[in-house]
Design a binder for these strands. Structure first.
Lengths: 330, 330
DNA sequence: ACGTAAAATGTAAACGATTACAAATAAAGT
DNA sequence: ACTTTATTTGTAATCGTTTACATTTTACGT
C-alpha cells in the first residue's frame, strides 16, 4: 500500500508538497502539482483517513440522529442529508434513538467521540426543552421538533399554519363539529394543537382535542370511543401518520364510511394515504427539503459560527383527497 | 480535554496500562484496573478514535450500501444492521447507490478509504455478476440480490420457492391463466421468474411473463396493455412493490375490480398493501431478519476468514388477502 | 545588478493512541 | 534459598498524515 512518503519520493518532492496538492491547502507550482497528481494516479495512492483526521482534527463527518429511519418522514430526510453530504465529500453517521432520551444522550456522546463537524437531530420533547447547545463541541441543527426559540438552529414545518389550513379546508367543505387528536410526545403535536384551536376560535367554533401517546393503538382506542359517543364529530383531524392509521382502522371497525359518516384529515403524505379508498386529505411535509435545509444551516454555521441562530419554518402543502369531500347538505 | 497521558499521570501508571485497561487487550492487576477506571471517570476521559484507528488500523465500522433507503425493504434492513452494529460497539456508514454501478464503485472505494471491517451490499445485476471479492481488503456480504454462487457470502430470499408459493396459492384458488411481470435489473427478478415458470409447468399450465425496468410506470403501461387484450389473464403476479403499485393503478384505471376481474399478487409486505381495498396477497420478506443475518455472517467471517463461503436463503411468508380470493366458479 | 518582498518548497515536530520489547515482580518447582 | 517460569508493568517506537517554521526560489522595483 502506497503512503504519502512513497508518492513524495517517486515524484521527487517532499511529503508536505504532496499533502498541499491533495488537500489544496497551500500554493504549489502547476508543474509540480501535475507531477504529483500523476504519481498519485500511477501508484494508486489514497490518503489514510485516520491519520488525516488525527492530525487535522477534522473529520468531514456529520451525525444524523432520528427516532427511527423506518418512518418514511425520516427516511426522506436521511436521504436528503446523505445526498448533500456525499456531494460535499462528507460522511454521514446515522443513529436511531427510538424516542428514548437515554439513547439520545448516548448517541450525542458517540458523535463527540467521532469528532463530527455537526449533528442534525430530531429530539424528544424533554431533550428539546433542556437542550444546551454549548455543551457540545459541534454545531447542532434541530429538525422536525420545535425547540426553545433562540437556543439552536432548527428547521421545522410551520405546524400551526398547517393545522389551521386543515381546519380552514374542513370548514370550507361544510364541516363544523371537529375533533382533534395530537401527539403528546413531541413539540410538534403541541404546536399543531395550538393551530387547531386558533382556527376553530377564528370561526367561532368549539372543538375538543386530546393529547395521546404516538401509537396506532392509542388513536384507534380513543377514536372508537368518540365514534360511539352520542354526538360524534363530523370530522377528525389527527396529527401524525400513526394516528391516521389508527383512525382509519377505528372508523372501518365501527362500520362507518368516510367521509359520509365522518371526515378524516391528518399529517404526512405517506404513500398509502393516496391508495386507500377514499384517499386521505393530508398536509404533505417537504421532507427532502427539510433535510436539505438542515444541511445548509449546518454548513453555513460551520462557515460563520457567530451568525445569529435561525429557525426556519417551511410551509406544508394541503393535499385534498376524498376523505374530506364536500358535505352535501342533505 | 483529557488525554491518555493525563489519565496515566493522575492514576500513577503508564499509558500502556491505561490502554490495556480500556481496550481490554492485556492483563492488569485488579487493583490498578480499578484505579485507572476511577481516574478515567473522574477526568471524563474519552479515547480519541482517530488516534486509536490510526495506530491499530481497526475501525469497528461497517459499510452498508443499498440502492435507496427510502425503499421500505432496505429501510428495515438498515435498521437491523444498525441495531446489531451499535450493540456491538460498531459504527455504520450508509450509502445509497441508486442502482448505479458508478456509485456502487465509488462507495466501495470510499469504504476502502474508511478502512471498514466489512461491507453489506445490495448490488445491481452487473456488479453482482462480475464482483471480485478478493479485490477488497474487507469481507463483503451480499443481500437481497443473488450472486454467482460460491463467490461471496450472501443472504437472500428463497426467490424461486416464494414465486412458486404464489403460483400454488393462485392455482389453489382456482386461477389458471396467470401472467407474470418481473424486474430486469436484478437477479431477484430473474430468480422469481424461474420459480414462476417452474410452478406453472408443474401444473401443466402455460403463462406468459415479461421482464421490465423496475418502475411503477413500466408496470402500469404493460399491464394496461394486457388488460385491454382479448384474452386477458385471470391473475397477475408481479415481482416487487413498485410493480404492485403500478398494477393496482392500471387495474383501477381500466375500471376493473380485484379479484373479480383479475387477481393480483406480488412481493413485499409494504404497509399500504394491507390498507388498500381489497388487501393484496403478497410474499412478506423477513427484512429485519435479513439484515440481522447479514451482520452475523460478517461478524463470523471476521472471526474466521477461512471458513467456506455461505449463501443463506431465508423463506418468505405468504400473506393471503382479498386480492386473490377464491374464484367462485360462476 | 541588487536588495526586498512574495511565493514555493522542505524539514521535522506534532496529533494521541497502541503495542513490540524490555524490565520488574510474583509464583512455582526443586 | 535459588533458579526457572509466568505474570504485570513500563519505555519508547510507531501508525500516516498535516502544518508551523525555516529555507530556498522567484518576481519586482529601482
Amino acid at each position: 500500500m502506497a503512503r504519502i512518503k512513497d508518492v513524495a519520493l517517486a515524484a521527487g518532492v517532499s511529503t508536505a508538497t504532496v499533502s498541499r496538492v491533495l488537500s489544496g491547502s497551500g500554493p504549489v507550482r502547476k508543474e509540480l502539482r501535475d507531477k504529483v497528481l500523476e504519481t498519485v494516479a500511477a501508484l494508486g495512492y489514497r490518503p489514510n483517513l485516520a491519520a488525516r483526521r488525527l492530525r487535522s482534527s477534522r473529520t468531514e463527518t456529520i451525525g444524523l440522529i432520528v427516532s427511527d429511519v423506518r418512518n418514511p418522514f425520516f427516511t426522506n430526510i436521511s436521504r436528503a442529508v446523505e445526498d448533500m453530504a456525499y456531494q460535499q465529500g462528507m460522511r454521514v453517521m446515522l443513529c436511531n434513538s427510538d424516542e428514548d432520551p437515554k439513547k439520545e444522550a448516548l448517541y450525542l456522546g458517540l458523535m463527540e467521540d467521532e469528532n463530527v463537524c455537526g449533528v442534525i437531530f430530531s429530539p424528544t420533547l424533554g431533550t428539546a426543552r433542556q437542550f444546551d447547545a454549548t455543551a457540545y463541541p459541534f454545531p447542532v441543527v434541530m429538525i422536525d421538533r420545535p425547540v426553545a426559540v433562540g437556543a439552536v438552529d432548527a428547521v421545522v414545518l410551520d405546524n400551526r399554519a398547517a393545522a389551521r389550513a386543515l381546519v380552514d379546508h374542513l370548514v370550507a367543505q361544510g364541516y363544523r363539529h371537529i375533533g382533534g387528536i395530537f401527539g403528546s410526545a413531541s413539540g410538534t403535536g403541541l404546536a399543531r394543537r395550538e393551530g387547531f384551536h386558533q382556527a376553530l376560535q377564528q370561526y367561532g367554533l368549539t372543538g375538543s382535542s386530546q393529547l395521546l401517546a404516538p401509537t396506532v393503538a392509542a388513536a384507534q382506542q380513543e377514536i372508537e370511543r368518540w365514534l360511539a359517543s352520542p354526538n360524534r364529530p363530523e370530522a377528525l383531524l389527527v396529527s401524525n401518520g400513526l394516528f391516521l392509521l389508527g383512525a382509519l382502522q377505528a372508523v372501518r371497525a365501527a362500520g362507518l364510511s368516510i367521509p359520509e359518516d365522518v371526515a378524516l384529515v391528518g399529517f404526512d403524505d405517506d404513500p398509502w394515504t393516496a391508495l386507500v379508498e377514499p384517499g386521505l386529505t393530508v398536509i404533505a411535509q417537504p421532507t427532502y427539503e427539510i433535510g436539505r435545509t438542515a444541511m445548509e444551516l449546518l454548513l453555513q454555521r460551520r462557515e460563520s459560527p457567530e451568525r445569529p441562530v435561525r429557525v426556519i419554518e417551511l410551509a406544508g402543502t394541503l393535499i385534498k383527497r376524498g376523505s374530506s369531500r364536500m358535505l352535501t347538505t342533505a
